[in-house]
Amino acid sequence: MSIDFKIINQYIAHITINRPDRLNALDLEHDRSLAAAWKRFNEDPELKVAVLAGSGERAFCTGADILDYIPHRRRIAESQVDNATISFGGMTADREILKPTIAAIHGFCVAGGLELALACDIRIAARDARFALPEVRWGILPGGGGTQRLGKIVGLGVAMRMILTGDEISADFALNCGLVTQLVERHELETTALSIAERIVKNGPLAVAAARQALLASFEFPIEQGLAKEAELQRELLLTEDAAEGVAAFAARRQPEYKGR
């Protein structure tokens, strides 16, 4: 049992939470291992996209292992540290992961597991997927970004209902409210996620990074600031070799050969 890190087609990191006997819940050890995997992904210039998955047939991830992780968080709370923001799995704090991420979800995707998925850029799911943020039933709140990300993705009303009731929603409902962008059969989940990753890899890496940054900014700033950020990033891109290559390849009707500069 571990956090498995596999490189596919040179540019894609496939990260799997491999703890199926615990429905891929993260204890403290696996939480730190997942954070280390994301650090490796961030620091490897060859890796362009990551896919996050869960092993076994029953779950993507069911969040924190309550008997191990929650006491750890309680000890931190008792220390009265001024900055109480804690990243779950090395990915739920602000802007920790610097490149595109795809969550390939099946089975239970609940509590911190849903918060991991919310921290990804793209979420696709098998039809057996089930989603919930049930933390209020345990006397706590979704503290891995759930209260901050869910409403921006599905809207305030759906987020309020999910978080305040702790109720589970189906894969079909998740698709209808925009929580996931695609539903596939379970046996198609892996190939679909990798297909999306491969399409991203083919694009200009500087453009992908800038477009991702601009889109995230649109959720953080008023439109005037967001448009200014978009214009700044566009100016920077227009001066790159990749931008010139993209235009040249389009004119010559060939595939571009991007260098990331």
Rank of each mutant, 00 (worst) to 15 (best):
Phe219Ser: 14
Glu46Tyr: 01
Ala13Phe: 02
Gly204Thr: 09
Val201Phe: 14
Ala132Ser: 10
His30Asn: 12
Thr85Ile: 08
Gln234Pro: 15
Ala211Trp: 02
Cys109Thr: 00
Leu194Met: 04
Thr62Asp: 11
Ala53Glu: 07
Ala211Thr: 05
Leu238Ser: 11
Arg75Trp: 11
Glu245Thr: 03
Leu183Arg: 03
Gly226His: 13
Leu34Val: 11
Ser55Glu: 00
Cys177Val: 14
Asn9His: 07
Glu188Lys: 12
Glu232Asn: 15
Asp4Leu: 08
Ser195Tyr: 00
Glu257Ala: 08
Phe88Gln: 11
Ile124Thr: 06
Leu179Asp: 01
Lys39Ala: 14
Gly155Ile: 12
Arg123Gln: 01
Arg130Phe: 08
Ala84Glu: 03
Pro71Asn: 12
Ala228Leu: 05
Val81Asn: 10
Arg75Asp: 09
Met162Ser: 02
Gln234His: 11
Asp21Ser: 15
Ala64Thr: 10
Leu189Ala: 05
Leu216Lys: 14
Gly166Arg: 01
Val49Ala: 08
Thr62Cys: 06
Ala248Met: 01
Leu34Trp: 12
Arg123Gly: 02
Pro142Tyr: 04
Val110Trp: 09
Ala117Cys: 12
His187Phe: 00
Glu245His: 11
Glu188Ser: 11
Gly151His: 15
Pro256Trp: 02
Lys48Ala: 09
Ala84Leu: 04
Asp27Ala: 11
Leu233Tyr: 06
Asp121Trp: 05
Ile140Asn: 03
Ala36Asn: 06
Arg58Glu: 02
Leu116Phe: 09
Leu52Val: 06
Ala210Asn: 10
Ser195Cys: 05
Leu28Val: 10
Asp31Ile: 08
Glu232Trp: 12
Glu224Gln: 06
Ala50Ser: 13
Gly54Leu: 00
Thr101Asn: 01
Ala25Tyr: 05
Lys99Glu: 02
Thr92His: 09
Ala125Val: 00
Gly89Cys: 03
Phe173Lys: 01
Arg19Phe: 03
Pro45Thr: 02
Gly155Asp: 12
Asn18Lys: 08
Asn9Cys: 02
Leu133Ile: 04
Asp27Ile: 05
Pro134Phe: 00
Glu232Ser: 15
Lys202Gly: 14
Phe173Leu: 02
Arg74Asp: 08
Lys152Ile: 10
Gly157Thr: 10
Phe250Asn: 11
Arg186Asn: 11
Glu43Lys: 02
Leu150Glu: 07
Cys120Tyr: 07
Gly144Trp: 03
Leu237Ile: 14
Thr191Leu: 04
Leu194His: 13
Tyr11Pro: 04
Leu238Glu: 13
His187Arg: 10
Leu114Asn: 04
Gly166Thr: 02
Asn9Thr: 02
Leu26Pro: 10
Ala50Pro: 10
Gly145Gln: 09
Arg95Asn: 11
Glu190Val: 01
Ile97Met: 14
Lys202Phe: 03
Val180Cys: 01
Gly157His: 14
Gln234Gly: 13
Asp172Val: 04
Ala37Ser: 15
Arg22Val: 09
Asp68Leu: 07
Pro71Tyr: 04
Asn18Ser: 09
Ala129Glu: 05
Arg199Ala: 15
Ala111Glu: 12
Asn24Gln: 12
Ile70Cys: 13
Ser170Ile: 13
Gly112Asp: 06
Ala59Leu: 03
Asp65Cys: 08
Arg40Phe: 13
Arg32Leu: 04
Gln225Lys: 13
Asp44Gly: 06
Pro45Trp: 00
Ala228Thr: 14
Ser87Asn: 05
Gly166Lys: 00
Ile12Gly: 04
Gln255Leu: 00
Ile196Asn: 05
Gln255Arg: 04
Glu96Val: 06
